[in-house]
């Protein structure tokens, strides 16, 4: 029974406006992908700068710590020896 009905389904012609809709969707997709690509690029650069900044800060801190640990004989003053007498 179902076969008889299903065989009777007529082929429908395609609506005219469809191609225009497809072109619009393709264009929208292209713009979105381009925008996403730009965002990704900006994000990558931002990440690069942040990383570079963090590294510089780390290096500066490391150098400054190292410098603090070194004893400068000329900076020793009398107060350093208080309590040793």
């Amino acid at each position: 029974m179902e076969q008889d009905y299903l065989n009777k389904i007529e082929k429908v012609s395609i609506p005219d406006s469809l191609l225009e809709g497809i072109k619009n969707k393709i264009e929208t997709k292209r713009i979105t992908e381009k925008r996403n690509g730009n965002y990704a690029l900006v994000f990558a650069f931002a990440l690069l700068f942040v990383n570079a900044g963090t590294l510089t800060t780390y290096n500066n801190t490391k150098n400054s710590n190292k410098a603090n640990q070194e004893v400068n004989p000329f900076s020793i003053n009398e107060s350093t020896f208080i309590g040793y007498e």
Partner: peptide, 10 residues
């Protein structure tokens, strides 16, 4: 079906 046809062609 219209929507699906458009998406398929995209």
């Amino acid at each position: 079906s219209k929507e699906a046809t458009q998406d398929v062609f995209v």
